[in-house]
Amino acid sequence: MSPTATRPLDALFRPQAIVATILVGEALAILLALAPARIADRLVLFGLVSLAVQWVSLGTLALLYLLRAPLTRLPTARQAWAAFGIFLAMSALVSWGGILLVEVADPLAEARPAFLLRWTGIAVVVGLLGLLAYQNYWRARQLAVRAKQLELEALQARIRPHFLFNTLNTGAALVHAHPDEAERVLLDLADLFRTALRGPQEIPLTEELALARRYLDIEALRLGPRLVVRWQQPPELPDIEVPALSIQPLVENAVRHGIEPRRGGGTLDLHVRIVGDAIEVVVENDLPDAAPPASGHAIGLASSRRRVDALTNGSGRVESGLEQGRYVARVVVPIAERGGPAQATTR
Rank of each mutant, 00 (worst) to 15 (best):
P70H: 13
L100W: 11
L67W: 02
T76S: 10
I99H: 13
V44A: 10
A52Y: 00
G130F: 01
W55A: 12
L61G: 05
A89H: 12
P107Q: 04
A111K: 08
A114V: 01
F87Y: 15
L48F: 14
R78G: 05
L64N: 13
W55P: 00
L129C: 15
L128A: 14
N136D: 08
P75D: 03
V56L: 10
S57G: 11
L100G: 10
L67I: 00
L58C: 08
T76R: 14
L48I: 00
A109H: 12
L51F: 15
I86S: 02
M90W: 03
P70V: 09
V126F: 10
L51E: 07
L51R: 08
L117T: 12
G130R: 07
V102W: 10
G121W: 12
V44L: 11
E103P: 02
L61S: 07
F115E: 10
L88C: 08
A80G: 03
G97P: 04
Y134I: 03
Q135T: 14
L48V: 09
I99C: 14
A105V: 06
W55D: 01
V53Q: 13
V125T: 06
F46P: 03
L71E: 03
W119E: 10
L71F: 05
V126M: 12
L116T: 02
Y65W: 14
S91D: 04
A114P: 00
A89Y: 09
L67G: 08
L132W: 08
G59F: 05
R118Q: 12
D106C: 01
L45R: 06
R68F: 06
L67D: 03
V49T: 11
A92S: 14
A105S: 14
L117Q: 07
A92W: 10
A133L: 11
A77M: 11
R118I: 07
P113C: 02
V44D: 12
T72G: 05
A109E: 11
L129Y: 14
I99W: 15
F84N: 09
W81D: 12
L100K: 04
V102F: 08
V94S: 02
L131E: 05
S50P: 00
A105C: 01
A111T: 08
G98K: 10
E110D: 11
I122R: 15
L61M: 12
L71C: 03
F87A: 15
T76V: 14
L66H: 06
P113K: 07
L129F: 15
S50Y: 03
E110G: 08
R112H: 15
L48N: 03
L108S: 03
L51S: 12
N136L: 14
P113R: 02
R112V: 15
G59A: 12
V49E: 06
T120K: 04
A92F: 12
A82Y: 14
S91K: 02
A80Q: 04
L108W: 04
G127P: 11
L129I: 14
R112S: 12
L88K: 06
L117F: 07
L63E: 03
M90Q: 15
A62S: 07
A89Q: 08
G47L: 09
V53H: 06
T72K: 11
S95F: 07
Q135R: 15
A89G: 15
V44C: 09
S50G: 02
V104R: 12
V49D: 13
G130A: 00
A109P: 00
G121V: 06
G97F: 04
T72Y: 07
A123R: 09
S57K: 06
L51Y: 11
L100C: 05
